[in-house]
Amino acid sequence: MSHGFLAIAVVVAQLLLLLAMACAIIRMVRGPRAQDRVLALDALYVNAMLLLLSIGIRTGSVLYVEAGLIIALLGFAGTVAFSKFLLRGEVIE
């Protein structure tokens, strides 16, 4: 009974996280400005990291945690680089 609840909860959570990633992608496509897209990309990274954690719980493998750690690190570096570019780069669309 309680294990059935856990199985359903993990699947529901993964669906929610997929929807969250879809929202981020919608914002990334719609824009309208570059900063909106970078913000959406950052949210996408975080949601992907959470999705990896939930996959880790579902499969019982700690490997996914390491993958999540790498996504968190790269996402941070990527967003900082994009923001720096927006601060310095002459990109007026």
Binding site: M1, S2, H3, F5, L6, I8, A9, V10, V12, A13, Q14, L16, L17, L19, A20, M21, C23, A24, I26, R27, L39, A40, A43, V46, N47, L50, S54, I57
Partner: peptide, 26 residues
């Protein structure tokens, strides 16, 4: 059983907050 319920609730809460946050983006 108690841990299964606890993990299930925590996972749902975490995904729920993440989803609401991204919904706000839209």
């Amino acid at each position: 059983p108690w841990a299964a319920v606890l993990v299930g609730v925590l996972v749902l809460l975490g995904a729920g907050f993440a989803f609401i946050g991204s919904l706000g983006l839209v």
